[in-house]
């Protein structure tokens, strides 16, 4: 964690797209009259989905839409680390550096990021990629892993991670999920527990 501030370079304006306006109306309608402020987190999230990050004009637009003081929206936006207060790449890599991933080689992935993208929290020159280290994303059994936009990429090695980054950069299709030969968080290779078949009488 570090001090979170709005980016010094801000766009002039922000407006939700017509589809997003409809979507936000639905969010606001979820809450009783006078409690519209409850929709602030989904609204910020949708603004981030639209723009890639939460901009100052977006904060002001959302404050107006919900009848909140601007400072209240800023408080929420700076409180949650899931809101990006600076621009991110088209493919935003969140790299888990917490103990299980670190033990399984997160440092190697970091080196890949530095080599293929650059310093953390800076967007690559082509605007395609940016990365930052985050705390545990809860996929420890498939460590090490990263989250790129909405998808998890697990069981990474320096090689296959570098390939994913280059494929994304080139606009090629990549496969989310475990990159090793397994499904979900099943054991690698064969099952190591619950190996006996279960019958009507129970386990043998």
């Amino acid at each position: 964690m570090s001090v979170r501030r709005l980016d010094p370079n801000q766009p002039d304006s922000f407006a939700f797209t017509p589809e997003n306006i409809e979507w936000t109306k639905g969010q606001i309608a979820k809450y009783p009259e006078g409690r519209q402020a409850s929709a602030v987190i989904p609204m910020l999230w949708q603004a981030q989905k639209q723009e890639g990050w939460v901009t100052e004009p977006a904060i002001e637009v959302i404050a107006d839409m919900l009848g909140m003081a601007k400072i209240r929206v800023l408080e929420v936006a700076t409180f949650y680390t899931m809101f990006n207060l600076s621009p991110v790449g088209k493919h935003f890599v969140q790299l888990c550096g917490t103990t299980p991933c670190w033990l399984r080689g997160a440092d190697d992935l970091k080196a890949v990021c530095r080599k293929h993208i650059g310093d953390p929290s800076t967007v690559s020159d082509d605007g395609q990629l940016s990365w930052m280290e985050v705390e545990c994303l809860g996929a420890c059994s498939n460590a090490p892993m990263v989250q790129i936009n909405d998808d998890y990429y697990e069981d990474l090695t320096a090689e296959n991670f570098a390939q994913i980054l280059e494929d994304l950069r080139a606009g090629r299709e990549v496969k989310p999920g475990p990159q090793a030969a397994r499904k979900g968080s099943e054991p690698l290779g064969k099952l190591t527990s619950l190996t006996t078949p279960i019958t009507a009488e129970g386990a043998e």
Partner: peptide, 13 residues
């Protein structure tokens, strides 16, 4: 409503 607390934890301002 013009004052607020941004950030959190020890970074709260």
């Amino acid at each position: 409503a013009e004052l607020g607390a941004t950030g959190r934890g020890e970074d709260m301002e």
